[in-house]
Design a protein around this nucleic acid. Sequence first.
DNA 1: TCAAAAGTGTTATCCTTACACCCATGT
DNA 2: ACATGGGTGTAAGGATAACACTTTTGA
Lengths: 336, 336
Amino acid sequence: MTNHAQRQADKTADAAASVKLGLNAAIVSVQKCHPQILLVKDRGTVGAGGLDSLPYGPFTPLEHRTLEIGLRNWVTQQTGLDLGYVEQLYTFGDRGRHAKKSDRLPHIVSIGYLALSGIQDETTIAQGSQWRSWYYFMPWEDWRNGKPSILKDEIEPLLKQWAGREPSSVSSARPIMRKDRIRICFGLDGVPWDEEKVLERYELLYEAGLLAESRLDGRKAAEIWQGEMAALGQPLQFDHRRILATAMGRLRGKLKYRPVVFELMPTMFTLLELQLVIEAVTGTRLHKQNFRRLVEASGLVEKTGDTSTNTGGRPAKLFRFRPDALLERPEPGLRV
Amino acid sequence: MTNHAQRQADKTADAAASVKLGLNAAIVSVQKCHPQILLVKDRGTVGAGGLDSLPYGPFTPLEHRTLEIGLRNWVTQQTGLDLGYVEQLYTFGDRGRHAKKSDRLPHIVSIGYLALSGIQDETTIAQGSQWRSWYYFMPWEDWRNGKPSILKDEIEPLLKQWAGREPSSVSSARPIMRKDRIRICFGLDGVPWDEEKVLERYELLYEAGLLAESRLDGRKAAEIWQGEMAALGQPLQFDHRRILATAMGRLRGKLKYRPVVFELMPTMFTLLELQLVIEAVTGTRLHKQNFRRLVEASGLVEKTGDTSTNTGGRPAKLFRFRPDALLERPEPGLRV
DNA sequence: TCAAAAGTGTTATCCTTACACCCATGT
DNA sequence: ACATGGGTGTAAGGATAACACTTTTGA
């Protein structure tokens, strides 16, 4: 390090180096085929526009020994829920995600977490919090009944317009064209839909100015265009929909190599129930017979011996998660 | 949210909610079959014990618009290097990772980043910074010449002792036994070695008290044991070896589904050179013929038409990365 | 001529995917 | 009887892994 750089480092290390750190939880459960996300009502914070938000609160090192402990505390205080499985997602720090142009809010860096809850009903959560289907915020992510109409009717035309407005590249570097990014993210022109690219799709829509959140960021007047009137899906407070997108993508990916689905299941379940939960999360349909074979071959579940008092049709064997699978296979997930 | 919780939230949001945020870069390059990591010399910080550290500095929102911009600035100042590919890894916040028991350092939350550099030589870095093989810090991770002797000779016996000292479970919950965790992380008793579990192995060694870093954390006297004298691999400042472990695991995993290797390659290279770089990173050997077939079939590279002035043996065709592969395949990586 | 690395061909095996079909229960 | 979901068998196709073998250069 040069002497100049050294002095620079010492100076900034002392001054103005502290920021507010926010902890945010995307808490997922699945209730009757609907992947739910736990929300809290607007608490009248400065800059909040009456939108719902994820449970969140600042990290206070004097009270909370670790980041995760802090997060669990906030969630319990705000929703009454005791979290089980928790995993860190990403730390977001872009200015403009949190603050409106020229307002005086302190800069906030927010750490997003994914949490999974096995509860199946609406009880046990506090006043002011509620479960909502995550597809309410990301309607283009649910392909269980075929391609969602919002894609053909709204998103694709608007994105096509946006691609047509692409400024010609100034530098010699050839960046990936908008058209190609759209193709890959949204599965156009023969590219298959990849259910894990939730964040990439969200970011693309954000960049194209098609989300309500895009407008809170200070945008240049020159960039105002027709699509600017669109507001796809229900927005959330701050950058919380972005955190949700990250959570969805991570969970969809993780299903395939870790037995996380069982965090969303009751202790006993039928194979169809398991399939419906996975379909709810991934937003796709699975091949029934192969799914069952795969699950039974995976060693992740075992028969309880009981059968379910069925809902139409032949009674189904009940299964439970078999934790010993973790000790046997190196990457125990359900590659479906 | 209850009224009590509301008041609590407002109170803590105002007071003591700011922390120091550190930005840390694990910068990787591969030079002559050695995966290198870029280090800077101890700057005499309070709490530093003369150990090398990753390039790092505080995040200062007033100067740096985003976290990544801040990181790039620190790296350039401290090492003279302009970063290309950069990716966020994880945010570490445990108390005790940074501060010795009862010292007065402010609580630091550190964000770790992975960066890749394609430079092949020692030039272009500033005084006070240097490249070191990452296996100097994690000698048990290099299996290119078979199982490393440090595993059989030191790690396995010490871990076996530690497993034997396991306290019997108090609660009714059955946690995963130390013995099983060791088996899975270190590939014992028929479990295959998984080169991606770098962080899991590091954490296990840390927990077993076999790393120099374990001792900086305030440990209960009762937990002192024979293995406490071990200090496997060369430590780094603060939690930087933990960040390095995270970076190694992430890079080893990412190779398989993203074309990140090419960030570590010169623009033109032979297939053997590509293979050696991948082997250096994963710490394993690959089957030559199948590797070549796989790479050529992947569409990720194209012939330049030139051949290399070879180093022993028949001249090899030169290849270059083909960026269009990104537009064609959904998950373009080298599953080797 | 030999070592060293480049490069080609072939085969056995496993895993995925799709299709066809039978079974048990409630109405 | 038939609708509904549970449950089994099997065969085609593709990807993977292992092996054997030829080619082209420098020393």
